[in-house]
Simulated scan of single mutants.
Amino acid sequence: MRLYRPRKWKRLAAAAVILLLLAAFINGWYWLPTGRLTVHQVKAAAAALPIMEPLSGRVLFVSPHPDDETLAAGGLLQDVIERGGQVYVVFLTSGDGFEWDARATNREVNVDRADMLRLGLRRMNEARAATAALGIPKDHIFFLGFPDQGLTPIYLQNYLSPYTSPHTGVNRVPYAGTFAPGKPYTGKELDRQLAAVYDQVKPDTVLAPSAQDGHPDHRTAAYVSSRLATQRGEKLYFYLVHGGLEWPLPKGKHEELPLAPPRPTWQGLKWNRYPVTDHQRKRQIEAIKAYKTQLMVVPRFMWAFVRQNELLLPAPAEGAPIPPADLGK
């Protein structure tokens, strides 16, 4: 048997140590230095954020995909209801573009367009179960049925002409139980339907995706939903789901830890902490369990949102100056 040279063993040992420390950093393993550093940084960053006043009244959550509402605001939405308010959720897409979901669900490497359409229906049903677990009435839920991973080209390139989803092969809303089935995938139709939901709900507060979000569907939804909200004079807050590489840290379920943003401030605005109770976390966990397709693929990402608080970024007042320290960031 051929033995490895000592130098090669040293390189392998060094690589193993680096991988172990990296895993500790990502997962927050307290028993290793990098894990303790991650936890310390998260606690310090969260403690520096202002605590937000509770929301009340009629709150509309704009969700690009099924699960965003539960991850970003599962406790907050319960809190609104517990305080006598009303919560509504509008799902812009049906999550029918995540092929790894379809592969995991079908247990097959190759998936076709029919599989993706079935995935869209399944994720809509998961969203119904999740929002019910959070206590949101079923008649407060709206599905628009636009294509996952298609919001940006729809809005920027196909505002008037129908967009065909490469995942499902359709260019119109194919799902029963949606707000306007059969309508074309155009930016104009997305504007029209979302405006009609706003008109029907008449929200006091809109929770929209942040333009900082790393997912293009979220960034497009940020523009569309915030523009409509500001036109109507509705109070507006932003939330975050895809905050960059490995956010949120640490991965996995850490209910005893706070949630901290990847950057505390953005364009002169500071993220706020919204405290979550033990009871609200338990119901959030049940809602996350409803998203079985997502848990098959990204479980540690999903569980990382079960924390002591959630995060909201207040929209700036019109014409408010940006502090000089944040200019150019």
Rank of each mutant, 00 (worst) to 15 (best):
A72N: 00
Q308L: 13
K202S: 08
D199W: 04
Y185F: 14
L311E: 00
P174Q: 14
G84I: 03
S210R: 01
M52W: 09
G268N: 07
W303Y: 10
V201E: 06
A45H: 01
L151Q: 07
D191P: 00
Y4S: 13
N171Y: 07
Q280T: 01
A47K: 11
V111I: 13
R273Q: 14
D213K: 00
R58Q: 07
V297W: 10
V206Q: 02
L32Q: 08
A44W: 13
A129G: 07
F98H: 14
N106V: 13
I141E: 14
V89S: 09
Y30T: 11
Q231M: 08
I81L: 13
R219Q: 12
Q149I: 05
E234V: 08
M116A: 08
G268H: 04
P262M: 07
G150M: 08
R122Q: 10
K183M: 07
Y4K: 13
Q267F: 06
L121H: 11
D278C: 02
T152G: 12
H40A: 15
W266T: 08
G182P: 11
I141H: 11
A102P: 12
H215C: 11
V62M: 04
A290S: 15
P153C: 09
M1W: 10
P166I: 15
Q200Y: 06
N27D: 13
Y30E: 15
Q78H: 03
Y4T: 09
P184D: 02
A23L: 11
T178S: 14
D199V: 03
R227V: 09
F61Q: 01
H279Y: 06
D68T: 07
G214Y: 04
R103E: 14
W100I: 08
A290P: 13
A315I: 06
H242M: 10
A195M: 04
F25K: 05
L144G: 04
